[in-house]
Every structure is written in C-alpha cells, then in structure tokens.
Computed example of a mutant assay.
Amino acid sequence: MTPAAHTITMLLADARLPSGGHAFSSGLEPALQGGLAPGDVSAFLRVRGRTTTLVDAATAVVARHVALDMVLSREAPFATVERAWAARTPSRAARHASRELGRGFLRLARNLWPHSPSIGAVESTVPRPIVLGAVAAHVGLDPETLVRLAVYDDMACAVAAMLKLEPGDPIDGVRLVLDACAAVDPFIPQLAALTLPDAIPAASAPQTEAWTEAHAVSNRRLFRA
C-alpha cells in the first residue's frame, strides 16, 4: 500500500470522520434495548463480525472490483452489487440505516474527490459498503486492507456508542474492538479474493435483525440502528 493510501486508510478509520457514523451504533443500541446484557457485548460483537459485518465487508470488496472495472470499461453495475447486499440484509431498518450512512459518506467523498469516476458513478441511495468500495478503488486500497477497514469501522462504531449507552473505561472499549476484529481475521483472505456479487456470503443474525426492526419504531433511541 502506498503512503498516500495508508494515510487515506487512517482517515477513513477515524471515528471523527463526518460521514454519519457517530449516529450509528452497529446494532448495539437495539441489542441493549432488546435485553442484551452489557457483559455480553463482547460476544455480540464477535457474532456481528462474523455475520452482518462480514457481509458488508465482502460487499465493499466486490464494489471495489466493480469500480475498478468501470474505470476501464466505463460501466458501473453497482445495482447488481446492491441487490446482492440487500438480499443478504433481511432487516428493512438495517438497509435504511446503511443507505442513510452511505448518503453521508458519499457526500464527503464527492467533496474530497470531485473528479473521481468511480465515486461519481455511485448513486446517492446505495448502502455504505458500496460507497466504501468505490472510495477504495479511487484511493488505491488493496482488498485485504479494505476488509480490515470495514470490520474495524463497524466494531468501532459499536464501541463508541457503548460508551454513551453504558459508560465505562474507554480502554475496555479498545480491547473489545481489537478482540472483535481478531475474530474475523481467519476470513480476510477469502473475503479479499471476492469479485462477483453472487459470491458475497449470506450470513444473517435473525435475533439482531429483530432487535433492529423493533428499534426502528422506538421513540427512545440515540442512534439510527
């Protein structure tokens, strides 16, 4: 990875990035409202990392591949990637939250790289992992780095939300993020090799999806999902 790409990676992984992540709990607020004990957050993150997060990371990798092909062929079939992602994201509320985050992230990306063909081809209604894949294609992130970034971002959002929902020592939150990311490490080479939408893994978590749906109609929430 080039020094410039390394810098961009650190920027994208920064929780202060104004792309809307500060308003997203990666499903943790719905889980806590649904009865998850604070002591089980570590287990929740590991499960999410191997299901929802894994699907999003794989979607970003495939979107990156599509974006690179687009630069060569002037075609960008992101719609096929989005349909594959949506089929693997059963919760309507989760899809809506991801598209809201994608809209904010895309706005930021277009401000930073207004002349990027890959970013310019992304529609404003796509979910965040597709925007992330298009950005990765533009800045030169390799697939494995992209997977790690996608996983870290999701876990970090959850832990940042936890410090508001269940205040504690931030260093404990850092440990949770590192442990959750490590749990996904065995899958990284497989995910990084994906190129086709149909190859995106279908790993769902029905209980967390039910919590997310209930959370969407709650009038006592701090985060989108």
Rank of each mutant, 00 (worst) to 15 (best):
A67H: 08
P77M: 08
G102Y: 13
T80P: 01
A134D: 09
L176I: 00
A150D: 02
P114W: 12
V139G: 08
R224A: 13
I171R: 15
V174S: 03
F223L: 08
V135H: 07
P90Y: 05
P167S: 00
L191N: 02
R128C: 08
L176F: 05
P186K: 02
S26P: 00
E209N: 10
P143S: 14
A37W: 10
I8T: 14
A156M: 11
A216C: 07
A156R: 10
D69R: 14
G102R: 05
P170R: 01
S116V: 04
L32Q: 07
S116A: 13
A205H: 15
M10Y: 03
L68S: 05
V66D: 00
V131Y: 09
H115G: 03
A205S: 11
S73A: 12
A192T: 06
P90K: 05
A192Q: 04
P117D: 14
R175K: 07
P90W: 02
L17R: 15
V47H: 02
R99T: 14
A58N: 10
V147G: 08
A67C: 02
A109D: 12
T7C: 02
S73V: 04
G39D: 13
A58I: 06
G39L: 02
R92D: 10
A76T: 06
R220D: 15
R128V: 11
C181V: 13
D169H: 01
A84Q: 09
A23E: 13
S98D: 14
I119G: 05
M162P: 01
G21H: 14
S25D: 06
